[in-house]
Design a protein around this nucleic acid. Structure first.
Lengths: 144, 144
DNA sequence: TTACATTATTTGTACCTACAAATATATTAA
DNA sequence: TTAATATATTTGTAGGTACAAATAATGTAA
């Protein structure tokens, strides 16, 4: 087949992407947190105390999705975030991470670091840069 | 940060993996087929008429999952596959793709090819090989 | 042969996704 | 100011996942 190498690379990207998120999920499991919840918590922490709206969280996600509401619902029920309608524009929601959320996030970070620790040495810095460059080149302007 | 390049590469693998499967999903959408269903159909076609068990399908999946039953249920309801208990070992299921399934799969293949067509030229063969090699090196023995 | 262990599949549960429709509020044009 | 439009979020639906428990059939040891 002409483009065997291309398809093998594509399969490997998909497979490895899955493996990596699966591995992260496994680290988070004991804390009762799912990966999308973890991502939202980190995004909220990144806002350094400033509340974010649903749309602002969306913009910062690895993947777009219209389900921030439901993820925030889960975090709310665990009291890891707070949510109230914005006083300026009542269509918007002001969402902030709670202190409980910040403390938990520190634990989660340690667990996820423990996952990356043994593999991040597998590539030199140049190789990592090259890998990223090749993936971006593969995607081009067409995908995403 | 010391391992900035590593993390950027990891993020890009995850993001691009998602983008690629999303793009495939969009191509399949008009046919009412979801990506996992497409994958199972291709696996069954690959068996060239020989029935596969649930476990054999599982082994060939990009991702492991214990939900083959439910995916096959969906395919059954569209008459794209047939399923009956194996006569040799009645715990096992014999699953084959139907003629209707084979015909549909030809259409699906065309749609998915149309997706890859404009991007597979983005990398030379050497680059594609290099990309695959770097991802495998990143994973090492630790992940998956 | 009966009891126990193993294997293969299915089912239950609690998450997740995309996409479309519904709701609520704000903005703009007549 | 009212009507129409736009924006922000939520909800409904139909699919997906992992993991654990249940079910059914087979294999094995006493």
């Amino acid at each position: 087949m002409k483009d065997k190498a291309y398809f093998e690379a594509v399969i490997e990207i998909i497979r490895t992407g899955h493996s990596l998120t699966d591995a992260v999920s496994k680290q988070l499991k004991p804390f009762g947190i799912y990966e999308p919840q973890f991502n939202v918590l980190r995004i909220l922490r990144g806002a350094k105390g400033k509340p974010l709206t649903v749309n602002q969280i969306l913009e910062r996600m690895i993947q777009r999705s219209s389900n921030i509401t439901r993820i925030v619902d889960k975090l709310l029920s665990k009291e890891l975030v707070e949510r109230k309608p914005s006083s300026i524009d009542r269509r918007k929601m002001d969402i902030v991470i709670s202190n409980k959320g910040l403390l938990l996030l520190e634990e989660l970070d340690k667990a996820v670091e423990a996952l990356h620790e043994p593999i991040q040495g597998n590539l030199t810095e140049e190789e990592a840069i090259q890998l990223k460059t090749l993936i971006l080149k593969l995607k081009g302007d067409y995908i995403k």
